[in-house]
Design a protein around this nucleic acid. Sequence first.
DNA 1: AGGCATAAGGTCAGTATTAGTCAGAAAGCG
DNA 2: CGCTTTCTGACTAATACTGACCTTATGCCT
Lengths: 154, 154
Amino acid sequence: MSTLSDHIEAYIKRMLRSSQDNSIELSRAQMADDFSCVPSQINYVLSTRFTLERGYIVESRRGGGGYIRIGHVQVGDDHTHAVRLLQSIGSELSEKQMENVLAYLKDHHVISPKQLQLIRGIVQQEVGSISQGKDVLRASVIRALLFFIIESKS
Amino acid sequence: MSTLSDHIEAYIKRMLRSSQDNSIELSRAQMADDFSCVPSQINYVLSTRFTLERGYIVESRRGGGGYIRIGHVQVGDDHTHAVRLLQSIGSELSEKQMENVLAYLKDHHVISPKQLQLIRGIVQQEVGSISQGKDVLRASVIRALLFFIIESKS
DNA sequence: AGGCATAAGGTCAGTATTAGTCAGAAAGCG
DNA sequence: CGCTTTCTGACTAATACTGACCTTATGCCT
């Protein structure tokens, strides 16, 4: 956690956790001012870290009284939702898609940071050594690992 | 007679030992500067000496605030033979070979009967849906799963 | 109602800052 | 000498950050 983006991300997540309904509303200009950066920096953080794929919903309005609202998808049963997420992985999975899936599961406490690290390492090991079909193999390995973790919990 | 790579390796391992959680973060450019070498030398050392096989997990990020993070997982003595077994799995693994590996690990209490069943199911699910290269995919998935299980015990 | 001022937020392309890759040179070792 | 390991540097890729310019909403004033 070192860059400005990381700090803004952490700040927003902190606000979300302390909110009543997993949803907060903020002013872009105010945020930019608080963190001493240009307003578009906030957009950058939102678009790279608070995506739908990671379980976040961002709405906004311009003009007077404008705002940015960030919601965190919360599902009653983490288990069934995680399984659904896995099922949604197709026959191929890019590196970026994988990161999104892992970020989602970490943010929903399905996997620990330590497990995330280990999974990354294993995937890198397996996928790195081949020249073709990386996305296909990545999909299989990730699905296998995550399925194992999720099933082991029940 | 030790090479520059050896020194870098020793330095990193020293840092790891003195770290709190068997994990350190470093800057590639900084390291290269400290050792008066080109940055890619660091990659060379990492790829030849800090492999997953040896219990190291290397993650990195490019761009502003980029880093290289190295984690070390200590495998208990009773599991070193299991790791060796995994290493002996080549690029392909037949169904029969897989059963032998699983039986061995079950007999040595590395995996439980329940886990064995789960692993079989997962592999079947992943491998069953493709027409070519079953043995290759099976090798990867099995290696990934078993590695995860073994490392998780540390 | 129409027009204009003000007050938000959005986009995008360019710059800066890291790290990764790979082929080939150099060095070490039978 | 031939093979393996180490080392280098040019090129590539990813991520972070900035600022100029654009779009949309609100309200006030005629």
